[in-house]
Design a protein around this nucleic acid. Structure first.
Length: 415
RNA sequence: GUGAGUGUAGCCUAGUGGUUUAAGGCACCAGGUUGUGGCCCUGGAGAUCGAGGGUUCGAAUCCCUUCACUCACCCCA
């Protein structure tokens, strides 16, 4: 028997209400903040990701779905959404548009990982990018939008973590300080941290091992090493966030897993934190557009995991609107009237009324039972008698009331 | 990649001191007289007990292997 590949899943009909609802909510918030949708391809040239995300990151090193196509090109299923959008920005010369250019996407993301709660090999992200300005007010707006998005979903009890990891001038100094500091404790570090020290020192900060905690607690903080411009940027950002009354917390250990981030980084997670609970994260990436061959262009973005949002909506019993469904069932008695039922169904649909017709030869009882389980509002019943008088029986399934309705008036009665 | 747990019908579960047709609930289908749903009653269909091998007179139940799923680590949405 076949089953969906590991880490993937079918989004079944009963789940679809969540997805449609989120499509609508994302479109709404984007309209409010002036973002327009962009859909990039599901796969890209592998180098797009290895260059932007970073050769040393876990995503590039062990999580990409990479293959060679029949033409010998190295292709990768997108493991994140920002790089493709930036590629599109450069490719289509969007620097000629009014800046910042604001784009959003809702897309499948692919990462080869061991699945577990809140983590899949194929998942979906809603993300948005504001490209073309380094004003901290833009950072604040991007963060505000994320926050308001969650508010519009009635997801409360969230925390907003913020940090600044500097730019390409000040970060190297910070990394040196960090390495120097940790080098003194190398014998006390866990095995993972020893490799982090050599490969990705920023990651040292968020080691969850108890033995490493006290060391991280008093480690140098990135904000103490910011260059004057970055420091001012971060200061202004916090001022704007205060202006917007966003309850952020500066978290010195917040670092993000992709190399392109500069200055502002932030994450939103439930207050009751567990593994893989982060709902979304983002940050500034002032060097990325240039890295991808564009002019030096500052930018900032944010992305959330749709599956994680849905699991939170469920967890807190947040209701989502039901999807509209066919409201009429057509039942018929006797094979002679079947033709009539088929024509009637078609006629009602052309009038914009959703119809499910009885298929197969079932007893009227069975047809009504089906109508009941489907949950339609009305059932139209046709038999010989009705055929003769050019009427149908219209049965209201909620109260079992029924009446004879002339065929010609059916549409208006159902509307 | 590492570690732990779990695998009985579409779903949830019973059955593990080894024995003949593997039990129940939900859901599904059909009946309960003539062309009428939901409740109730009756019946039906649906499982090679994850797969392969072994021990045994006999295995869902014991042993081995394997696969899958779940959770955690790494890391992330």
């Amino acid at each position: 028997m076949y089953q969906a590949p590991r880490g993937t899943s079918d989004i079944l009909p009963q789940e679809q209400a969540y997805w449609r609802y989120l499509e609508q909510k994302t479109a709404n918030i984007c309209q409010l903040y002036g973002y327009e949708r962009i859909d990039a391809p599901a796969f890209e040239d592998t180098r797009l990701f290895s260059r932007s995300v970073g050769e040393g990151t876990d995503i590039v090193e062990k999580e990409m779905y990479t293959f060679e196509d029949r033409g010998g090109n190295k292709i990768t299923l997108r493991p994140e959404g920002t790089a493709p959008v930036c590629r599109a920005y450069v490719e289509h010369g969007m620097h000629n548009l009014a800046q910042p250019v604001k784009l959003y996407y809702l897309a499948s993301i692919f990462r080869y990982e061991r699945p577990q709660a809140g983590r899949f090999r194929q998942h979906h992200q809603f993300g948005y990018e504001a490209i073309g300005d380094d004003d901290p007010a833009l950072d604040a707006e991007v963060i505000d939008m994320a926050w308001q998005f969650f508010r519009s979903l009635n997801l409360r009890h969230l925390s907003l973590n913020l940090n600044s990891i500097g730019c390409k001038t000040c970060r190297p100094e910070y990394l040196i300080a960090l390495k120097d500091y940790y080098a003194d404790y190398i014998d006390d570090l866990c095995a993972d941290c020893k490799t982090r020290l050599a490969r990705n020192p920023l990651r040292l900060l968020d080691c969850k091992k108890r033995s490493c905690q006290p060391i991280s607690d008093s480690a140098p903080r990135s904000i103490d090493y910011l260059c004057p411009q970055c420091a001012e940027h971060f200061k202004q950002l916090q001022r704007y966030l205060g202006l917007l009354e966003l309850p952020f917390e500066v978290n010195h250990r917040l670092v993000r897993g992709l190399d392109y981030y500069t200055r502002t980084v932030f994450e939103i997670q439930p207050e009751t934190e567990r593994a893989q609970s982060t709902l979304g994260g983002g940050g500034r990436y002032d060097g990325l557009i240039e890295e991808l061959g564009g002019k030096p262009t500052p930018a900032i973005g944010f992305a959330v995991g749709i599956e994680r949002i849905i699991s939170n909506l469920k967890k807190y019993n947040v209701p989502v609107p039901a999807l509209p469904r066919a409201q009429v069932f057509i039942a018929y008695v006797g094979d002679e009237v079947k033709d009539e039922a088929i024509k009637l169904a078609s006629r009602l649909r052309q009038a914009g009324i959703g119809v499910i017709e009885a298929i197969g030869s079932k007893s009227l009882k069975a047809q009504l039972r089906q109508a009941n389980t489907i949950g339609v509002q009305h059932t139209v019943i046709i038999g010989d008698q009705e055929l003769k008088t050019a009427t149908v029986i219209l049965r209201d399934m909620t109260n079992a009331q029924q009446e004879a309705v002339p065929l010609t008036r059916l549409e208006e009665r159902l509307r």
